[in-house]
Design a protein around this nucleic acid. Structure first.
Length: 245
DNA sequence: AATCATCCCAACCGCATGTAT
DNA sequence: CATACATGCGGTTGGGATGAT
């Protein structure tokens, strides 16, 4: 099998030092993003490329918006999550200056609880007290798993086993779980809530920020909807059409 | 003040996917 | 076509910060 990218002995792990940050910033300022594999060596960093990429994207990029999420951002995340499921990079792409990691963390630490408090199942965005109609596939079952962290977190952590053909069912599962009326309402609200600063076009996950822009210039933006997705088979029917059909 | 519990976020890991050879 | 490589994504974890007792 292929070797893991981060198995190099002598690579630093854990928190980044100020010096490491500066090296990475300086290098990217000079050479731009991309070629993460070779970047650490070229920049004089004892880190794997993955780690450098993560550090840059989630923390060092100059256009990152720091601070609390606004009410409008919060609502948008909830609405987009209802439509897209755990597609954090897609959701983050609609929130200028926010990273997928940040959105994911905010969802797990704040919004999930908020929805639960409101009596809404965060997995499928249904009101818990409303009887659910039978469905072929249960929505993301909450499996109580024990983790090494034990009871550290109130939120149940579950790692649903990846489907054999990838995670392409996630969106459809989540979307299918929505009651039709609720789905329509969400779609209307998302569309209506659009402001000039928030890109609601879901057709292509073009990152909202320049730092997130295609670093290689010639590569297509990847939009993963899975092998069996009709979207992939028919490039003309992108998610926008699928969702707002 | 000390201890314990919980929260939060940066970072890591494994896997999927696209591309090059 | 098969394989290896490079990158991106989402789930999970480690550990510092903060709050409660």
């Amino acid at each position: 099998m292929r070797k893991p990218c981060c198995d190099k002995q002598g690579n630093n792990k854990g928190a980044w030092s100020v010096q490491e940050d500066q090296k990475l910033i300086d290098y990217i300022k000079t050479h731009g993003e991309g070629c993460w594999r070779s970047l650490p060596k070229a920049a004089g960093l004892h880190r794997c490329g993955k780690s450098c990429r993560l550090r840059w994207i989630n923390y060092l990029r100059p256009d990152i918006k720091r601070g609390n999420f606004g009410q409008d951002e919060e609502e948008l995340i909830i609405k987009l999550h209802a439509l897209l499921g755990n597609r954090w990079s897609l959701i983050a792409g609609r929130l200028p200056g926010r990273t997928d990691n940040e959105v994911k963390n905010y969802w797990n630490s704040h919004l999930k609880k908020k929805l639960i408090k409101m009596g809404i199942d965060p997995n499928n965005h249904r009101l818990n007290q409303i009887p659910t109609r039978p469905q072929a596939e249960p929505a993301a079952p909450v499996i109580a798993t024990s983790t090494t962290k034990g009871s550290k977190n109130n939120i149940t952590r579950s790692k649903p086993k990846k489907l054999s053909n990838g995670d392409n069912h996630r969106v459809s599962d989540t979307a299918n779980c929505l009651e039709d009326d609720y789905k329509s309402l969400v779609i209307q609200q998302v569309a209506a809530s659009g402001s000039s600063s928030i890109n609601l076009d879901l057709s292509i996950a073009v990152p909202a920020s320049p730092g997130h822009s295609n670093p290689f210039g010639n590569k297509q933006q990847n939009f993963k909807w899975g092998k069996t997705s009709q979207v992939e088979n028919d490039p003309s029917s992108m998610p926008t059409l699928l969702l707002f059909r």
